[in-house]
């Protein structure tokens, strides 16, 4: 039932023929110009590999000191979470929560979800939560703000440069690597393909049981 031979543009609702873009090509909506799909080579394998790398990098990026500052003989170091703690101690609880979610919790959950999904697809093992995970990841996409955080580190450092002596720690390098990995991850994750594979897996599971 329900198998349709058409597709629709998510932003202008134009009825389309199913997209047949192959690897390296881009499919745009002819009416509104939206990028419909950009299939990537070995999407599941790459996503799985990148998720593992991202998950590992998450820990040094969060635990190692990022920036050290020396000002008038006093020294201080900043870690990713210490900004949240400082805001919390300032009484800015709402802002601290937002920073915590966008720079720590959501990125972590996003990487764990993509690790779980691509792992299950890679090993062809069905799981009844796959569709849920995929939906959550889709909703989280916009709220993972690592690259915005990186830009704020740059701006903050430029502001402080003339006033204090700054030192960059391994946490910052791990953080930069994490941003590269998550960017590659979003570029390589082929949504259509993932949904098709999830659908196939759950169908096979239903038929078997």
């Amino acid at each position: 039932m329900n198998i349709t031979h058409y597709d629709a543009c998510p932003e202008c609702d134009l009825l389309l023929n199913p997209n047949t873009a192959s690897v390296g090509e881009k499919a745009h909506c002819p009416r509104c110009g939206l990028l419909l799909s950009r299939p990537s080579k070995r999407s599941v394998e790459r996503t799985f590999a990148l998720s593992i790398a991202g998950f590992i990098l998450f820990f040094p990026a969060n635990l190692l000191p990022m920036v050290g500052i020396t000002m008038m003989g006093n020294a201080n170091t900043g870690v990713l979470y210490s900004g949240v703690v400082a805001l919390f101690n300032n009484g800015m609880i709402a802002v601290a929560a937002v920073v915590f979610l966008a720079s720590i919790l959501f990125p972590l959950v996003h990487i764990i979800l993509s690790l779980l999904i691509s792992g299950h697809l890679y090993f062809n093992s069905p799981n009844r939560y796959l569709a849920h995970w995929m939906r959550w990841m889709h909703h989280l996409d916009e709220w993972v703000m690592l690259e915005v955080y990186m830009l704020s580190i740059i701006v903050a450092c430029v502001k402080l440069m003339s006033l204090a002596k700054l030192e960059f720690g391994w946490g910052l390098y791990a953080f930069i690597a994490l941003i590269v990995i998550t960017t590659l991850l979003t570029g390589n994750l082929d949504n259509d393909l993932f949904w098709q594979r999830i659908h196939q897996l759950s169908n096979r599971n239903n038929n078997a049981s």
Binding site: N74, G78, V148, V155, L160
Partner: peptide, 20 residues
């Protein structure tokens, strides 16, 4: 999302510039 720049920057500055 790029407007969060200022908020993140404040969290970094509040954390780093905390001396006597």
């Amino acid at each position: 999302r790029w407007s969060m720049l200022d908020i993140f920057m404040i969290s970094i500055l509040v954390d780093l510039v905390n001396f006597n």
